[in-house]
């Protein structure tokens, strides 16, 4: 699944007001970036943006996320990763490693969306 397809799927599943989320996604992603597969860090960023921009879900404190030794590798996505971990939307690759650059399978992405929206 491309990044564009994932964003589309997410907005279709929500069916609410996604204008702010959409604007955020278009500002942060070029056409070329939208054609890329969805890595775990990208999925975290997209899901977290949805949580904040459209679903008004507040951040929670970091707990399990602190154990991930690669979480601090990504200043732009560290908190997004932490939030999807704390809410159980995406599983880490290993208990102490999120796996930022690992492309996600379609089933994992669909599952994350279902957990968030439902």
């Amino acid at each position: 699944m491309t990044t564009a397809a994932f964003i589309d799927y997410l907005t279709e599943e929500y069916r609410g007001d996604t204008a702010a989320f959409w604007k955020h996604m278009m500002a942060d992603n070029s056409e070329e970036m939208l054609m890329q597969p969805v890595t775990k860090k990208k999925a975290a960023l997209i899901l977290h943006a949805m949580m904040r921009d459209s679903l008004d879900i507040k951040d929670v404190d970091w707990d399990k996320a602190r154990k991930l030794k690669d979480i601090y590798d990504c200043r732009i996505c560290a908190n997004a990763v932490a939030q999807v971990i704390e809410r159980g939307l995406i599983e880490p690759e290993k208990p102490d490693l999120f796996g930022m650059q690992i492309p996600m399978e379609d089933e994992e992405l669909l599952s994350a969306v279902k957990k968030l929206i439902i």
Partner: peptide, 17 residues
């Protein structure tokens, strides 16, 4: 090449993998 688009998923300082 786009570092986020390499075929090798095992990268980016993931020594355990």
């Amino acid at each position: 090449n786009d570092p986020d688009n390499r075929n090798n998923p095992v990268d980016n300082n993931m020594p355990d993998l």
